[in-house]
Design a protein around this nucleic acid. Sequence first.
DNA 1: GCGACAG
DNA 2: ATCTTGTCGC
Length: 220
Amino acid sequence: MLHSWNLSPQEAIALQKRLASSVVLKPLPEEITLVAGADVGYPRRHDRAVAAVATYTYPGLEFRELVRFQGKFFYPYVPGLLSFREIPLLLQAFERLQEEPDVVLCDGQGTAHPRRLGLASHLGLWLNLPTVGCAKTRLVGTHGRVGPRRGQYRSLLYQGDKVGVVLRTRTKVKPLYVSPGHLAEVESSRKLVERCCIQYRLPEPIRRAHLAVQRAVRGA
DNA sequence: GCGACAG
DNA sequence: ATCTTGTCGC
């Protein structure tokens, strides 16, 4: 279960293939009272990184907690290996949360991944918590044109499977790529994400975490 | 061999 | 992601 994070691309890929079989796809818990959003950013001097996790009550979406962790760590961005770049920092941030969330929204793919183990899935396995991937752009899969209205969506297909949906979270705004991470599945993930997007494109928890990361990575 | 490619 | 200001469109 426990492994190092400075793996070579080949080792990382092999590990993903093994871990993918442990991912559990099932509806999210019926009772969700706390939802978290996570994000990571690397400053210009890429020798350290910043992670942030924000929690909100659900379905009321009242801000609950914000944790930020900054540490010396670096792993390059390699398409398909994002989890190795962001999870080490995220784990530190999650350890500092006062209250454990019922589900975690991540800024990346879940199972909509070449080896079905995107950031959200990998993080979910480590935390043993339900996770959902919310990516701003596509990594893999095909889909039809999504209607212009908030709430409209199209299935994201990959290798013959419906791995997620492309969801319009705001009218006339570029859609989001939503895919289950771990202990989650497409339908419930889509509904949760839509309900977490109030007045912006990104789910409120992720948006809050993102703002915190930006504040740290930049100045101010 | 030629594109595609989360953040 | 990060580098960066103003600006066109709904």
